[in-house]
């Protein structure tokens, strides 16, 4: 009934690579996803892209006043070309316009952790990146999706959607050479491994180095830990390159540690996730250290902004720690800040907010991950080829102290920070912080009503 001034929240952004597909080449930008294994491109003719082109999604904005902020990017990153649809901004693929594309009559139907999906058919075509060409490369063309961009999944082949289509399409599970595997089979790299460097949060470019390590991009020691076998088999419900997190601590500006948890849990370094999802007990312990209140709608803790300055979120992965600036996880909103750590009971992920401060080497063949603290010193490249082990990496002291699956228990045993804490999950005052970030002066809501915090005493797990 009245004008409501809404703020569009910048979801940090996503990390993409540019590829050329087909003959003649069609340009697509694909989200780099270490949490999935298939490459999908949007079919230029899919219904979602057509819908977006007609703008019907915007018909309901009549009652909103939209504001936007534009940030200039280097001229080399975005051309001045006018994009007629959001899908064409990211690049969509027209199979009929490629003389070398072949459908292989295998369907895919993949849903991700955020509920988005791609459905369509696999096919093969020429894929090129720079001066490298991969002939007859397998990927999916999505004719049903609500994602504007395609995706480049570079995880283990066991995570390919072809392994989970038996019931839906009566397809015998099989694996194909996904992108990192194809690079090796085409002789472009010696081992199916790659190093991810997202660079500083404000940087426009990072890099992914297939088949090598750049020693100039990290500081300190590069430690190796094993991928967890429970997530590496065809029977795994949630396949992926999970490793064991052994503990979590907050380190303030005086280098004083506050241990949040010494509980083992499996976690994925996922470039396709913006923030993080952690076990509820551990997330609550972190939230409590900052005096936060959990908002299930905002998927994070509402905190005083002053409490999250000059602080690091540090993870122990087995005798060594990797720390990320807590500001990477923070979204300022209204007069408070949202600490974007989602509490969950399964599927624990450290996303871009953590990965910007980490240098991660994924060794898909040896099923190991090597991790170091990222370095932003802009030193000259020092690239070493991965031919057997990862150059410069040493086995972590806690290599063999891995999380072990126990039926019914998603995490290990141990102590949380302060075994009693306050659960704020239903705190109504902050349930929709982001949605009401800048309410109109005339608006009123029940959110101003007082709420009582539910206090729950938790026992040791």
């Amino acid at each position: 009934d009245e004008v409501f001034n809404s703020t569009l929240v910048n979801a940090l952004g996503m990390y993409v690579v540019k590829l050329e597909i087909g003959t003649p080449p069609q340009t697509v930008y694909l989200q780099v996803d270490t949490g999935s294994s298939d490459m999908y491109v949007n079919d230029a003719d899919n219904a979602y892209c057509e819908l977006m082109s007609y703008g019907s999604d915007y018909a309901s904005t009549d009652n909103y006043e939209l504001t936007a902020t534009f940030t200039e990017l280097p001229s080399s990153t975005i051309s001045s070309e006018a994009y007629t649809t959001l899908c064409s901004y990211w690049g969509a693929f027209s199979a009929s316009n490629s003389s070398t594309f072949k459908y292989n009559d295998t369907h895919f139907d993949e849903t991700y952790g955020d509920g988005t999906y791609y459905k369509g058919t696999y096919g093969t075509d020429v894929v090129s990146l720079g001066n490298i060409t991969l002939e007859s490369f397998s990927f999916g063309v999505a004719n049903s999706t609500e994602n504007q961009a395609g995706i480049l999944g570079i995880s283990l082949p066991v995570g390919e959607n072809t392994d989970s289509l038996e019931n839906a399409y009566n397809i015998t599970p099989f694996e194909y050479k996904n992108f990192p595997m194809a690079l090796k089979s085409h002789g472009k790299i010696e081992k199916t491994a790659y190093s991810l460097f997202l660079n500083e949060p404000d940087a426009h470019f990072g890099s992914i180095l297939f088949g090598a390590v750049d020693k100039s991009k990290y500081s300190g020691q590069l430690y190796t830990v094993p991928m967890l076998q429970a997530f590496n088999t065809i029977d795994s419900l949630n396949p992926g390159m999970f490793v064991t997190a052994q503990g979590v601590a907050i380190v303030d500006s005086d280098s004083k540690n506050k241990t949040a948890s010494e509980v083992q849990f499996p976690v994925l370094f996922d470039s396709g996730t913006t923030y993080s999802t952690l076990p509820t007990g551990i997330a609550d312990a972190i939230g409590k250290i900052f005096g936060g209140k959990y908002s299930s709608v905002d998927q994070g803790y509402i905190v005083d902004c002053s409490k999250v300055n000059n602080t690091q979120l540090s993870f122990d992965f087995g005798g060594f720690n990797i720390s990320a600036n807590i500001s990477n996880f923070v979204t300022p909103a209204k007069d408070r800040c949202l600490l974007n750590i989602e509490a969950t009971d399964s599927g624990f992920v450290l996303g871009d907010a953590f990965l910007v401060d980490a240098y991660v080497v994924y060794d898909l063949e040896n099923r190991e991950v090597s991790i170091a603290q990222a370095s932003f010193n802009d030193q000259e490249e020092d690239i070493k080829i991965i031919s057997d082990g990862v150059p410069g990496a040493t086995t972590a002291p806690g290599y063999y102290s891995t999380w072990v699956y126990t039926p019914g228990s998603p995490i290990g045993t141990g102590d949380f920070y302060n075994i009693s804490w306050t659960s704020y999950s239903e705190n109504s005052e902050y349930q929709t912080l982001i949605a009401t970030a800048i309410p109109s002066s005339s608006s009123s809501s029940s959110s101003s009503s007082s709420s009582s915090d539910e206090t729950t005493t938790k026992n040791r797990n």
Partner: peptide, 28 residues
């Protein structure tokens, strides 16, 4: 040279106007 280096470009996510909240764009 036995390695392939790809620049990874950080692009702003265009919010999906059809979605019901920010939660839809937080994780994949």
């Amino acid at each position: 040279n036995s390695y392939v280096k790809l620049p990874v470009q950080k692009l702003a996510n265009i919010p999906d106007m059809d979605s019901q909240g920010a939660s839809d764009i937080f994780k994949r």
